Amino acid sequence: MRGRPAAAIMLSDEERAFLESQVRRQEVARSLSDRCRMILLCAEGLPSKEVARRLGHNEHTVGKWRRRFSEHRVAGLTDEYRSGRPRTVSDAQVAEVVRRTLETAPRDAPHWSIRSMASETELSHTTVRRIWTAFGLRPHRSETFKLSTDPLFVDKMQDIVGLYMSPPNRAIVSCVDEKSQIQALDREQPVLPMAPGVAERRTHTYVRNGTTSLFAALDVATGAVIGKCYKRHRATEFLDFLKRIDREMPEGPDVHIVMDSEADQKTAWGAVFPPNATHKTPRIKAWLARRPHWHVHFTPTSASWINQVERWFAELTRKQLQRGVHRSVTELEADIVAFIETHNEEPKPYRWVKSADEILASVKRFCQRTQQTLCGEL
């Protein structure tokens, strides 16, 4: 007796081109590539038994994909949806993991880890990981923030951002600040240099060889930096640095200086500077008053990020100070001066991209999220 006749396969030009392209592709799944080969051989008029012999498959497998293709064409070559294994974790268990992660903490730690949560809820650590990933929970991460309490925050921020994005004609905008208490650190043992397959190694203990303070002024338009190191950080040194800036500035254009008022800065011992510290002493006020072409713009309290010279300080720390070894303050100051000179050979200005309205909108969204979080906890 003869069995059920095999379905005849007739291919259109588009179907043949698609099947042949899937056979040639290296990235395609092996299962789909084999199915395409089966259909191409069936389209040549070969019986399923011969196709199975050539490709090393079972005859019933070839017959299955022949029927699927004749019924659904190219779409029939993909696997059908499979329900998979039934769920072993209920919605209530997922909700409990999320609730504990957000509202509680283990007895021996400030936050949950994957395995401590798995032990507490009697779930596998892979299940806890999937739940945390699905809900965007990362208890091990912590970020810091500080909102400015300056009552004139909006006015000061709009003033300074306006200088960055639309500077006055024929005027120089310079960001001035100091990086105090820069330590000259040496390692207790020699640094072992890098070798193939071996990273540079240094001791975690160090020797302090003194400190220095760097006053710097960044030209917003060109990116050039004027800097000078001082042994002390007082109004006297700051006034001397302002005089240096004045000497190096060209005559004629107005000078707009962006700096902080130091009302919110603290010393190494935690004592708050008095209101007239360093940047606002009578001598400095008098010196600025004698120069009407100088215009001072104070940054808001707790908003040093708006001063672009802080970005240059971060670059100095990362490239020069973080891994530097200095046996004396003289060596430290020499390296800082060399870094400034190298920077000024090819200075590049920092590009300020956010407008004042965009910054205020971002601060507003943060405050709203914080308020919602606090209200949810209450």
Rank of each mutant, 00 (worst) to 15 (best):
E188P: 06
P190R: 06
P190I: 00
V191L: 12
L192C: 13
L192G: 09
A195K: 15
V198A: 12
A199M: 08
R202I: 09
R202D: 02
H204I: 14
T205M: 14
V207Q: 05
R208D: 08
G210S: 04
G210V: 04
G210I: 09
S213E: 00
S213M: 07
F215Q: 00
A217G: 05
D219M: 10
D219F: 06
A221M: 10
T222R: 12
I226S: 09
I226A: 11
K228I: 08
C229R: 05
C229E: 06
K231S: 15
H233S: 08
H233C: 03
R234V: 04
R234I: 03
A235N: 13
T236F: 02
D240M: 12
F241K: 10
L242C: 08
L242T: 06
R244C: 13
R244G: 08
I245Y: 05
I245A: 03
D246L: 03
E248M: 01
E248Q: 14
M249A: 14
M249W: 07
P250Q: 02
E251M: 01
G252N: 10
P253R: 10
H256W: 07
D260K: 04
S261N: 00
E262F: 11
A263D: 11
A263Q: 09
D264G: 02
D264Q: 14
Q265V: 01
T267G: 15
G270H: 07
V272Y: 05
K280A: 04
K280F: 06
K280R: 14
T281V: 03
T281R: 03
T281S: 15
R283E: 12
R283V: 09
I284P: 12
I284R: 11
K285G: 12
W287V: 11
W287D: 01
L288Y: 02
A289D: 14
A289G: 14
A289C: 07
P292S: 14
H293G: 13
W294T: 03
W294H: 14
W294K: 04
H295Y: 03
H295W: 05
V296T: 10
V296K: 00
F298G: 04
F298R: 01
F298E: 00
F298M: 11
P300K: 08
P300F: 00
S302T: 06
S302K: 11
S304P: 00
W305S: 03
I306V: 13
